[in-house]
Amino acid sequence: MPADVIRCNTDAAWSVAKRAGIGWIFENSDRQVYSEGSKVIDHVSSPLMAEALAMRKRNAMQEAQHKSFSNVWFRTDSQELARAIDSMTYSVELFGVLMDIELLSSSFDFIVVSYVSRTLNGVADSLAKAALHSSASIPLL
């Protein structure tokens, strides 16, 4: 991997009310935090969709572009999402979001999407849960 790879952990928390809190954190290999963010989104169909939205534009990938990070390692604790992105096997439910992720991926010089265990994804998890329990929400775009 390039020496200047920025790690981005993403996570989502979903409720049966079809509301999701999403969170992301960017850090370098020395665990120095560059940026973190979270938001809540209404009308999210499933936990897997919430995980995909956490990574998609207007969220982690857009933030990486905004910060001019060109070498990024996106990490999710959703094995199903990491597998879908890696294999480019897109379910009907996730097709549009995963196509957005694929398109946005082309704007980076180096990009990897992989699974990370929940124990190593604590900050993104906390951000997502805090967002889910907040009162402000945004429409799904």
Rank of each mutant, 00 (worst) to 15 (best):
R83N: 14
E102Y: 12
I85N: 12
V44W: 00
T10S: 00
S46Q: 02
R75Q: 14
D77F: 09
R58M: 13
A84T: 01
A131Q: 04
D86C: 13
P47L: 04
I138T: 13
K67T: 01
M61R: 06
A54G: 07
S45I: 04
D100F: 03
M61A: 06
Q79V: 04
L48F: 03
A20K: 07
D109G: 12
F95T: 13
G96A: 13
E36N: 13
D125F: 04
P2L: 09
G37K: 07
S45H: 09
V72L: 03
N121C: 07
D30T: 10
V72C: 02
S114F: 02
S126N: 12
L127F: 07
A130K: 15
D42E: 14
N59Y: 10
F26Q: 00
A131T: 01
L53Q: 10
D109H: 11
D125G: 02
G122I: 15
V113L: 06
S46K: 02
G21Y: 08
V92Q: 13
S117F: 06
Q62L: 05
S78T: 03
V123C: 07
S87D: 10
A128F: 09
L127M: 10
S91F: 04
V92K: 12
S78H: 01
T119R: 08
A3K: 14
W14G: 04
F74G: 11
V40H: 02
R58H: 11
K57L: 15
F110I: 01
I111V: 14
D125S: 05
E51Y: 06
M99L: 15
H66G: 12
N28W: 08
A54T: 06
A52L: 02
V33N: 01
F108R: 04
E102W: 07
A82P: 05
I6D: 04
V16E: 14
I22M: 13
V113N: 07
L103G: 11
A20N: 10
G23P: 11
R118N: 06
